[in-house]
Every structure is written in C-alpha cells, then in structure tokens.
C-alpha cells in the first residue's frame, strides 16, 4: 500500500550535538515550540536515529564526537538528509584552531558516504525561520531521493 504523500512530509528529526555551544540547540527547540511551531507540519524530534528521516546536527566536531556522528549517520535509515545548523557545524566557526576540534561535519559524513545530502544553514545561531526554511529544503531533497520530483 502506498502511503499518503502527507506522511512523507511529516519529517521526524533526530538532534545531534556534535560539540556545539547550545546556541543552535535552543533555537532548534524554539522552532518546535508555539511561536514558530513546526510541529504543526508533523515535524518532530524523535529519540533515536533509527526512527529519523532527518538528522539535525549542530556544532564543530570534537575529537570524541567524530566516531559517534559516523555511527549515528549509519544508524539512520535511507533516504535521509542532514541539516547542519550553524556556522560551527558548517565551517568550525570561531573554534578553528584547537587541538580538540577536528573539522566541519560534512567532512566526516563524506568519509563514510560520498553522496550524503546536506542542507547547510549558516548563522550564529540561525534564526528559527532559517531553520524552518532548511527543513523545507530537506523536504525537497527527500522527495528527489524518493524519485517523486
């Protein structure tokens, strides 16, 4: 049975903090709560990557998190999109010169999956509106991956 298309649009997201300062994390939660309320579209945070369509990642990758984000990525079922929220996750931002920061998130994801689909959301931290726009872009990418575009 083919599910209604609306089911595809109810994105379930798993939030991974790869070493972020919390700034992006609270804006992600703000996007879920009543003022911005993405839950009205059926987007919600889930507690396991195995249930997720979208991985929301924030923060520069610390040495201890590098193997873990690879593991989390592998646990997420296909098709999947990664939303990288914030400057640090995209470029490592202000933390560029440390012994414990290994690099931006896409670098590690490309090591295990060269075709990884990433939506980059810049900002320090991005506004909830920007995060919602990123989620909308993730829809389009997922539709493309499912061959519905």
């Amino acid at each position: 049975m083919k599910l209604n298309k609306n089911f595809d649009r109810a994105l379930w997201a798993f939030h991974v903090n790869t070493g972020s300062c919390n700034g992006c994390d609270i804006e992600i939660v703000a996007a879920l709560t009543p003022r911005y309320d993405v839950e009205r579209f059926g987007i919600k945070l889930v507690g396991s990557p195995r249930h997720a369509d979208v991985l929301i990642m924030a923060g520069p990758v610390t040495r201890a998190m590098a193997p873990r984000i690879k593991r989390i990525y592998n646990q997420t079922p296909d098709p999947k999109v990664v939303l990288v929220v914030g400057n640090c996750g995209n470029t490592t931002g202000v933390y560029y010169e440390s012994y414990n920061i290994l690099g931006p998130i896409d670098h590690f994801l490309k090591q295990i999956d060269p075709d990884v689909k990433i939506v980059h959301i810049p900002g320090c931290p991005p506004r909830p509106e920007a995060i919602i726009e990123g989620a909308a872009k993730a829809w389009l990418v997922l539709e493309e991956l499912r061959g519905e575009a």
């Binding site: 903090n17 070493g19 972020s20 923060g59 520069p60 610390t62 201890a64 998190m65 202000v94 933390y95 010169e97 440390s98 012994y99 414990n100 920061i101």
Partner: peptide, 14 residues
C-alpha cells in the same frame, strides 16, 4: 565530562 571539550582556553590564549 569532556566530550564537548573544545579547548576554548587554549584557543583564547592564541
């Protein structure tokens, strides 16, 4: 602790 250790004091001293 330490998973989110970013070495901020070390960066700051540079």
């Amino acid at each position: 602790p330490g998973v989110n250790h970013r070495g901020i004091e070390f960066i700051g001293m540079r």
